[in-house]
Design a protein around this nucleic acid. Sequence first.
DNA 1: AAGGATTGCTTTTTT
DNA 2: AGCAATCCTT
Length: 733
Amino acid sequence: MNPETHPLLQSLNAQQREAVTASEGPLLILAGPGSGKTRVLTHRIAWLLSERQLPAWQIMAVTFTNKAAREMRERLTRMLGRDAALEMTLGTFHATCARILRRESERAGLARDYVIFDTDDQLAVMKAVVSELGLDDKRYRPGSLLNAVSRAKNELVLPADYPRRTYYDELVARAYARYQERLRQSSGLDFDDLLLETVRLFRADAETLEKYRRRFRAVLVDEFQDTNIAQYTLLRLLTQEHRHLYAVADEDQSIYSWRGADYRNIQRLREDFPELRQILLEENYRSTQIILDGAMAVISRNLDRTPKRLFTRKAGGLPVTLHESYDEREEAQFVAREVRALRRGGVAYGGMAVMYRTNAQSRALEESFVNEGIPYRLVGGTRFYSRKEIKDLLAYLRLAQNPDDDVSFQRVVNVPPRGIGQRTLETIGAQAREGQTSLYRAMVALLAQGTLDGRTRRALEPLATLIQSWHAARETLSVGQLMDRLLSESGYGAYVQSQVDEVERKRGESRWENILALRAVAEESAGVTLSDFLTEVALVADVDQLDESVDAVTLLTLHSAKGLEYPVVFVTGLEEGLLPHSQSLDSPQELAEERRLLYVGMTRAQERLYLTYAFRRGWYGNNQPAAPSRFLDDLPDEVLGRARRGKTVRPTGSWGASAWSREATPAPPPRPAVAPRFRAGQRVRHARYGEGVVTESAVEGDDEVVTVRFKDSGIGFKKFVAGMAPLEPLSEH
DNA sequence: AAGGATTGCTTTTTT
DNA sequence: AGCAATCCTT
């Protein structure tokens, strides 16, 4: 075999070749943006299949999105000219676990017909738990409790093991336990359960673990830096025997720590697999030198990272455009005008993307795109699958699959109105609690008892009969056929068609059309079982739906931009409080993540990069002045195409309002060395968290980082950048 | 039980 | 500003 002429290795650089042909031990590829890491991963799989003669079904490859998985499968098919890759286990962690749990439901102690609960469903369950436990939902927000539960699950902590260091912890633990009980009562699994239950299964059942260890002779993971502990544990369990683990990572693109992703997994990998081989991919094939320079200037200010020497052969390039506008409307107009100009210059709409920190920012952009007649495609926002009518229809489908799904039951029990009101529901609920069973079963039991009054019985009986008949029909009918039956027999179809309101008209979208769209999705996946259909629908992200066939500008959050690339990229809203987001200003770790977020956005651009910010920005209702993002300070003048430029100067100790100005000083004064303001033992007050005691203060770079233990034990320890946090001393010390 | 009006609250990012 | 939860009326 000659590496120069081997068809799989042609057009790969030396490092990439090494990564593709490496021996079958643990390997970590540290890749920069645009270094072709997904390509390397694909070639590696093709290599294993063709050169190592590994059967496809023995390969497990995990990607971050379903879209990435689909693209990889398509590429493999093209490269190998056959469907060898079809038998491969390829998809996200969640999808892979969902499949394993479906197959091993009995051994895992789960219902075969389990349904996946999405964020809305989780919230509904947690709300019920909070009221059942008699907690104040202001003080114990269902959302925050879910956060805590999710964090625990990602770290494989079960309710019984939940650390109860404070009273708040105690309540979280109780809520967690009740939440799990309710979930299981409904035969439901939330996203985190998919991972957690798979790990539990493998840990508890040596035989099953052995089966999957033998099955997956090679395990490959993309975006390894964004794995959480549960996912890492899963990888370790599967590979610690044969040690054929292949991970691709870029620390600088780790942007999901809020979801439990733990960049320390890279370190764990090095410890758990001491023989780990590491390969660096430093050549960037995507961006011009100038864009890369700008991005590196931003990211290199982060501490705790492996410095990389990224380079590209696309020397020079157009300077990065930095644009200030008065408010978000003008910013949107600027973007729209540039888009039109670029279009006239020959750039396809599909080659342009506009990125922002929060979904709410898309509104102004959409408006000006509509005004200018520019076609666009919105990723995220109100996701298709979280629209009311879609959720309603899915709830009917879920009931057909699993009548015990209480969340779905409650959702549609009286939609359309069937005369089943609060009182009736309470009766059913009481019966369910008493019999430790689901609402549906309780309803059936009540009907059988014959104790209900005539009117209630006449309301409930048809529904009970319908659910039962749908459940019975679910395996003989196709998903599309079942949907048709549901829509007509439940009266929901007619109900939606009769409910066309003004607001809908204006937005030019109709609920009925959305329902038809979902029906079309079902028709497309002909031959798919109801349970697979529901699983698929629950686990798709919006990026997955990206339809590239229409020529339109893409509008998306920085988070969903990961893994994508466009000739022209606009990163908008580069303001203090937005990027970095105000929720992140308190903690150095989160601040570093905000920086990485900008880095991800910038490195999506191939040819042309725009960075924009506004002088004022509307935050729910009122309009507030904003300061340009601190990250902009790190862009060298050369990148912006200026010989020299005014520096943005911010008064220390405040990021407030209009307290910034532009000076035409060629050389801005160096930041003064930081003199620590706080000392250990000092009492302080934080605007949000109240009183506490400083336990540590250290100067890191230009910042003073203080650790505070708060009085309110529910808060515990927090780290702040002293100059940025609303923190004031209460005592000398 | 259903629909409409009022209040109060919120926004980070998503598999 | 927009939306959900809550109150109020029929």
